[in-house]
Design a protein around this nucleic acid. Structure first.
Length: 426
RNA sequence: GGAGAGGUGGCAGAGUGGUCGAAUGCGCCGGAUUCGAAAUCCGGUUUACGGGUCUCCCGUAACGUGGGUUCGAAUCCCACCCUCUCCGCCA
């Protein structure tokens, strides 16, 4: 959520910035009307509440002295209805304001390139060169089919489209990737390993910005009359660890990592990446979340992106870093770096990690604060999240980049310890 | 799933219709005392929102959540959520 002051005192300017960057049309007329009424109604409501409180206390005092309270009672009765109506109207206005405010995306940082869609993204740098082969490289679907390692057909019989069954050495390689990433981030990058719930309450998703606007992207369960959602990313439970908390300054930065399943409905992506395991309803990811002081978040953003890049470098995978343009960024982000890994099977770079600084946008939604020793006051935290990295896509990248002419796959050196020392899976 | 107990400030724990944002203790911060420390004593110590003469003052709200009763609710009523104990089931 944006600072409410931006939606009140600087409404016109904020609307312009949202339009120019994200192409988002803020309902200025509605907000103006609400704000105009809010102010008078709120002042009047509090006035009446004050009146009621003082009269009620007077009644108590009069009763204690044994005096007649009838006149006081009559006085209160006089404005009781107005108070009720006023309170109700104020609640309506505040609800209406929140309904709008919770659907307004974050303002991009000034450093973010302006653009409409992914074509406006800008490459920052690249690492390695696209892998060369002296034979025609296959894609992961072919490579996986050879030994029954990767089986979409069985998965669709069990669960439907966009699921995959992994078997044997490929399943093990998948697990090895997760282990490697987790060990790297906890052992070398200072992240604390956390194991989190995969089913979360709606409030947690409001906190990260997935709700109320993007419910159609989520899987939901209504068992036992309690509505819960399957997490689309571990960012949700990890970031919500500071929800409604005031953390001490010496606990910052908080760096947390978790290996979890992620579940996405992929509504609106029909026809995209239908073959293979690039885009699945269920996938695994090692997530990085940092919680920082506001003054530290941009340095942390670079650091986090480097942590994700290190994963790809250690795996020996060619990649490039992109900065997403204003029109392609996610709802909560102020700036996002995407890492795109080279996939020989597609002859293209494809997203494998996304690292975002959300500044105070999520923290404000979840009232996540820290105590600033300089002011002694609780102030909003900054939250960052990044994939470190997507495991399914890393598996694809390893398969396609490490394939050999006979369809076998060399095991990247850093993974061999997790593979019983195997140098190749065949 | 069955039976019972309970959710109050950073923590512990009082409070069962009135001046209670809330005793007391602990913790924490400041001060006094001390050569210094301990002990002791004094004072302070939640958050959100709104208004203003905007380093401060005033007001409103918040005692699990949401409704209700009432002039007035931490306190009474209803629903829900959560925690704990015992039983059952279970990875």
């Amino acid at each position: 959520m944006l600072d409410p002051a931006l939606l009140r005192a600087q409404l016109a300017d904020t609307a312009r910035r949202l339009r120019d960057t994200r192409g988002f049309e803020l309902d200025v007329a509605a907000l103006e009307a609400l704000e105009a009424e809010r102010k008078t109604i709120q002042i009047r409501t509090q006035e009446l509440q004050n009146l009621r409180n003082t009269r009620s206390k007077a009644i108590g005092a009069a009763k204690a002295k044994g005096e007649d309270v009838a006149p006081l009672m009559a006085e209160v009765a006089g404005f009781g209805d107005e108070l009720k109506a006023s309170e109700a109207r104020l609640a309506e206005i505040q609800q209406a304001f929140a309904d709008i405010a919770l659907r307004v995306p974050n303002l991009p940082h000034e450093s973010v390139p302006i653009g409409r869609d992914e074509n406006g993204n800008v490459e920052m740098h690249r690492h390695g060169e696209p892998t060369r082969f002296d034979f025609k490289p296959r894609d992961h679907i072919d490579l996986g089919a050879r030994k029954g390692w990767l089986d979409a057909e069985s998965a669709s019989r069990i669960s439907g489209a966009r699921f995959t069954v992994l078997r044997g050495e490929l399943a093990r390689l998948h697990r090895a990737l997760a282990q490697f990433m987790l060990d790297l981030h906890t052992g070398e990058h200072g992240y604390l390993e956390v194991n989190v719930p995969l089913l979360v309450a709606p409030e947690a998703l409001v906190g990260t910005g997935n709700l109320p606007k993007f419910e159609e992207d989520l899987f939901r369960t209504d068992t036992g009359d309690v509505r819960r959602f399957l997490i689309p990313t571990a960012e949700v439970p990890l970031t919500n660890l500071v929800r409604e908390q005031i953390v001490e300054a010496d606990a910052l930065p908080m760096r947390m990592t978790a290996h979890t399943m992620c579940f996405r409905a992929e509504a609106g992506s029909y026809g995209r990446d239908v073959r293979g395991m690039i885009r699945q309803h269920q996938f695994e990811k090692v997530e990085l979340v940092s919680i920082t002081r506001p003054q530290d978040s941009w340095a942390e953003h670079e650091r986090m992106t480097r942590c994700a890049e290190t994963v790809l470098e250690r795996l020996g995978l060619p990649y490039r870093r992109m900065v997403l343009c204003t029109g392609d960024m996610g709802f909560a982000a102020a700036r996002t770096h995407d890492l795109e890994v080279w996939l020989p099977g597609q002859d293209a770079y494809r997203e494998i990690s996304s690292c975002s600084n959300c500044e105070a946008f999520q923290a404000r939604r979840m009232q996540g604060r820290w105590r600033n020793p300089d002011t002694g006051k609780p102030e909003l935290l900054h939250t960052l999240n990044g994939s470190g990295v997507a495991i399914g896509r890393a598996l694809i990248a390893v398969m396609e980049n490490y394939q050999q002419a006979d369809g076998s796959i060399r095991v990247p050196e850093v993974l061999r310890g997790y593979m019983g020392g195997a140098e190749v899976i065949a």
